[in-house]
Design a protein around this nucleic acid. Structure first.
Lengths: 218, 218
DNA sequence: CCCTGTGAAAAAGTTCACAGCA
DNA sequence: TGCTGTGAACTTTTTCACAGGG
């Protein structure tokens, strides 16, 4: 029993909680122990009522007349987002992007742990991607077996566009419940699998639209 | 004079146009010359009325009773998004992610052209990042001068979190009008500069929320 | 008096449903 | 008849504004 129902939380609130959490952690390391919604709002360029409303979906988190205790709020949001445990992830596709992600320090801090990396190409299978001797790229053929043995929560997909759909299908069959897709195609999410898109070319096209718009207005 | 005003286009429509464009290009290479909003909608998992409404902000694009001509619509959306020209971009931060982006083939197809790469660390300045002999990482000290000589439209920022804010500030002073920020901090957008966030850890935290939610429901 | 928590209003975005043209 | 283009209804999200506790 908790004071809230996750289904009542608007989908737009979730990424904002991540944003608040990051700023709160920064404030905490800077020694700030208390903050008002107004001050936090100014720092991250959102509306103060937005912050208060977002937090209110989870129940009361602050003190009237005072504000929010930074450490306490960090702990609360961490719990709400399910970040008080470790999530295991794998990377499918050991190209440049996949390798860059594999070496990215910073997932660890957030308790996201890379447990394996897969590729279909013989030229990269066996290649070392991390500090441990055992951090070697595996064949995608081992995917099913690996997922059956080890608990895999999330998969990052960095395969070429043409292989993304079948890769996600395969991951779904192996029981992976969440996918972060970096391939420049919108993949169909299989039943019960959460798919999020990280879409570079789409971002660039948006920038292009607004840049072009700016030129019109001159 | 054009049949529409870009300010009337909802901000959510723009990334969807990019999505439509991608699927239309795929259909085109597959030889499909005509498509209805209904069929396109099914393929990319959105509502058909959504597509028609999105397109309607730019005026009429199809034929009643028939549908949309694929090639014609590709050309139209390309123009609306400002993709009928080449956009020059630079990358600031020659770490793993920056280098992966620099080598990514696929920007060229979209007429985005990498014209320089910068870093502040002596250990990477001068390193080759592309096929040309002249594709070498420059010192950030050269940034201003470079931007004055060459036209730079977009900057991708792949520096550490702590340097992102000052980097964007510096880019703004150098006259860069659009920034794609990969650093895990929300940077304040200087007046007249368009900043878009590509935020991995935020995406992961969102996945965490929904994964955790799924567990509750069992 | 200050700042949270929250109903209520406003704005933005999505979907429906149908008129109207090919 | 078939499918677009679009007002209108509906849903979601944001912002306002203020009651109420510290």
């Amino acid at each position: 029993m908790r004071g809230f129902d996750k289904n009542d939380v608007p989908s737009v609130t979730v990424p904002r909680l991540a944003l608040y959490l990051r700023k709160l952690r920064e404030l905490n390391t800077r020694g700030v122990s208390r903050i008002s919604s107004k001050d936090l709002a100014e720092m991250i360029d959102v509306n103060a009522a937005q912050i208060r409303k977002d937090l209110s979906y989870f129940g009361s988190a602050g003190t009237r007349g005072v504000g929010y205790e930074v450490e306490d709020l960090i702990e609360k949001i961490t719990g709400w987002l399910g970040l008080d445990r470790t999530w295991n992830f794998i990377i499918i596709g050991a190209g440049l992007l996949g390798t860059a992600l594999a070496r990215y320090r910073g997932f660890g801090e957030q308790r996201f742990r890379l447990v394996a990396m897969f590729d279909s190409s013989a030229t990269v299978i066996g290649a070392r991607y991390g500090p441990e001797e055992s951090d070697r790229v595996r064949s995608v053929r081992e995917l099913d077996e690996f997922c059956r043995k080890e608990s895999v929560d999330i998969a990052m997909v960095t395969v070429p566009a043409g292989e993304a759909e079948s890769t996600v299908q395969r991951l779904a069959e192996a029981g992976v419940k969440a996918v972060l897709n970096f391939a420049p195609v919108k993949v169909h999410a299989p039943e019960g699998v959460l798919v999020r898109q990280v879409d570079l070319s789409s971002e660039l096209m948006s920038l292009s639209f607004y840049l072009d718009k700016g030129q019109d207005e001159r």
